[in-house]
């Protein structure tokens, strides 16, 4: 018991050290450093608002916040999966050297993105104040949504990271897929203006569900509809389980290949 406890504490320490490294690395040659994590969403919001807020002024009442809500979640997802994809390959030398579980490296990358999200949330909070959006009590549900999103991202990361060891082109394929995925996630347009197949694609799309739920909770002060909650939970659980299973099964092969 105490042994596993000690291990767990050690793992947490390792994840934190790895995360610290990632963040320091990311901004190691820039002057503004970590400030970019705050600036990035703001700038991107500015650009998109400039172009689209007129276009959607009737259907979206507060375009900048509407966009920002989607953007930070989307950023969490892409950041986490993209960096976790190469986690095993990048940390090759460490993997060989130590007897830590391989999951740690993937976890650390995803955790790094969560920390990044923390900084983005600062920007988000400021913007909420600027645009006088007063969130209702429902905002307390947002951590749950972010957590579910994170579990989903972790599942995808597990799959990608083990696939990337065998095929380098997963990276390129995934970037194409992400572009498609982004346009299907209704980040900068209202989803209810669409119909037909694409509408149902968007509604099944897990990312859209998370984004929409967060918008409900923060912007409109409503609890997301029941089916949306069910979908969020099911997506997170299913993808995580699948990802973890694949990761476990290929563990030995990955070690040999590396």
């Amino acid at each position: 018991m105490s042994r596993t406890d000690k291990d767990k504490r050690q793992y947490i320490f390792v994840i934190r050290e790895l995360t610290a490294r990632e963040i320091k690395r990311k901004y190691s040659r820039s002057y503004l450093g970590i400030l970019w994590s705050v600036l990035n969403p703001l700038l991107s919001m500015g650009v998109l608002s400039l172009i689209f807020s007129q276009l959607f002024s009737r259907s979206i009442e507060n375009f900048p916040i509407y966009y920002l809500t989607g953007y930070i979640l989307w950023q969490l997802f892409t950041g986490a999966t993209n960096s976790a994809m190469t986690a095993l390959v990048d940390n090759k030398t460490m993997l060989i050297k130590v007897k830590l579980p391989m999951e740690i490296f993937v976890l650390a990358r995803v955790y790094t993105e969560l920390v990044n999200l923390g900084y983005s949330l600062v920007a988000y909070a400021v913007m909420l104040a600027v645009f006088r959006v007063v969130p209702g009590w429902t905002i307390v549900l947002s951590p749950v949504i972010i957590l579910l999103m994170l579990i989903f991202a972790l599942g995808v990361s597990f799959i990608l990271s083990s696939a990337y060891v065998f095929f380098g082109d997963v990276k390129h394929l995934y970037s194409v897929l992400l572009t498609l995925w982004m346009y299907c996630s209704a980040i900068f347009y209202p989803a209810d203006q669409l119909g037909g197949i694409i509408r149902s694609v968007i509604e099944i799309n897990p990312i859209y569900n998370y984004i929409d739920a967060l918008r409900n909770v923060v912007m409109y002060g409503t609890i997301p509809p029941g089916w949306e909650i069910v979908r969020m939970v099911v997506w997170a659980a299913a993808v995580y389980a699948a990802g973890y299973y694949i990761f476990r099964r290929n563990k030995n092969k990955v070690m040999q290949k590396i």
Binding site: R9, Q10, F13, V14, R16, E17, L18, A20, R21, K24, R25, S28, T93, M94, I96, K97, V98, L100
Partner: peptide
């Protein structure tokens, strides 16, 4: 030379490497 991150300082590497080897903080 394995497990060192060349973008980090010596101090940071001591902590990172130590953590990976299994030392507590």
């Amino acid at each position: 030379g394995t497990g060192f991150d060349f973008e980090l300082t010596g101090r940071e590497n001591v902590y990172l490497n130590g953590a990976i080897i299994g030392y507590t903080k």
